[in-house]
Amino acid sequence: MLEKEFERAGIPAVLVTALLPIARTIRANRITQGIGITSPLGDPRTSRAEEKALRRRIVLEALDALAREPADNKETKGRIGG
């Protein structure tokens, strides 16, 4: 719900979450797929280096969503997690 208040105040906000259906239910404008509930921006089953590379990709996707109008903001693909 926070992202909606940020957007209402004119600050673009991207929600990074594992569970897109919740983001859609609450009608968030900008959404990026995170990995898992228990680890939205990491994958504990991979090495620390791989994990950070994965995190970097998600963050870049999220920043990209901030720099675009939501109409062309595609949902991004999730990976197995948590």
Partner: peptide, 8 residues
């Protein structure tokens, strides 16, 4: 009830 969308 898995913890990621892919698994769900």
């Amino acid at each position: 009830e898995p913890t990621s969308m892919t698994d769900i």
